[in-house]
């Protein structure tokens, strides 16, 4: 086989079929895929009520105060942007939510229940999934396998069940592969499903991280600078994808530096600076907020006081 052949979709695969589809067929197919991706449509129910609450969260590392009494809510079905200059505490905020750090004081509540000392993998199962600022995929696995690891978060097969191949194992494996395939299509990287993650192009790796996080069936999806290193065209595609994820019933928390992307896609924005929340509101309000402008552009000397 020549190199060219290897990268072209071989006949018979879904990827090749999709390439041949008419506009109408394509839309139907996409709807089907979206259906498989968000199996549990209940997530969309109760739109607007509080999903996650940061209640006066403080994170101290020795003398450094990374988060200082930060409070905000994330509502079901919204895209919330979390912005701030470098070192403002955005990723610390993520880490406090996903259980990587435990808040020094204050608490994180998911659906009204404090996360407390819940371990990381249990928090994922409770419904918070994330991507990483520096891509952290399972390099030696194929794209499809990476996503299936995400679906495993919901699986109940025991080690003995897997060892002896009991019926539940087969049922879960089958469902997992179906779902993972749909997810790869959903984020648009199905054509490289069989490639090792480390061999995928950069943009594909970013999308694969999103697919893997979605596979855990999160109520809240946290994206940590998903557009880092993207060109403007790619950023537009990513915006589209984030909207599509929300429309499919997920709630999204987005950390991002790119203002055009944040302003274009979020419903509400929280601004952090030096570990403190300095503003919260719609993109329009944030754009005109004096404190935010000062944080980003600095304040002329005569304006102080």
């Amino acid at each position: 086989m020549t190199e060219k052949n290897k990268n072209e979709p071989a006949p018979g695969g879904i990827v090749a079929e999709v390439a041949q589809m008419t506009e109408v067929e394509l839309r139907e197919h996409e709807a089907e895929v979206a259906d498989v991706v968000a199996t549990d449509r209940e997530f969309a129910v109760g739109q607007g009520e509080t999903l996650l609450e940061m209640d006066n969260v403080t994170m101290r590392f020795g003398g450094l105060v990374a988060l200082d009494g930060v409070s905000f809510d994330i509502k079901r079905g919204e895209i919330l942007g979390l912005i701030g200059p470098n070192g403002a505490g955005k990723t610390t905020c993520f880490n406090a939510m996903t259980g990587v750090y435990r808040p020094t004081s204050g608490q994180v509540l998911l659906e009204g229940k404090p996360l407390g000392k819940t371990t990381k993998h249990k928090i994922t199962r409770k419904g918070i999934a994330r991507t990483f600022q520096n891509i952290r995929l399972f390099d030696e696995m194929t794209a499809l396998e990476n996503v299936v690891v995400g679906t495993d978060a919901r699986h109940k097969t025991s080690v003995v069940g897997a060892l002896l191949r009991l019926p539940r194992h087969f049922a879960e494996e089958k469902a997992a592969v179906e779902k993972a395939m749909a997810l790869l299509e959903f984020v648009g990287i199905a054509d490289r499903a069989g490639d090792k993650a480390k061999n995928l192009p950069y943009g594909y790796q970013r999308r694969l991280e999103i697919a893997r996080a979605l596979a855990t069936e999160p109520k809240l999806l946290c994206l940590d600078e998903p557009a880092a290193g993207f060109n403007p065209a790619e950023k537009d595609e990513l915006m589209e994808l984030i909207r599509k994820i929300r429309d499919d019933g997920f709630t999204v928390l987005l950390i991002e530096h790119d203002m055009r992307l944040v302003m274009g896609v979020t419903d509400r924005i929280v601004v952090l600076e030096f570990g403190k929340k300095i503003a919260e509101g719609t993109p329009e309000e944030i754009r005109n907020d004096k404190a935010v402008i000062a944080a980003y552009l600095g304040v002329p000397d005569d304006d102080v006081a």
Binding site: A10, G13, T142, L144, E145, E173, A193, D195, K198
Partner: peptide, 20 residues
């Protein structure tokens, strides 16, 4: 994957990339 073979076939019409 227990069903990897079928999945790659259906999705991209060939097996996975062993020699990545």
């Amino acid at each position: 994957l227990a069903y990897g073979r079928q999945a790659y076939q259906r999705l991209v019409g060939r097996g996975e990339m062993v020699s990545s």
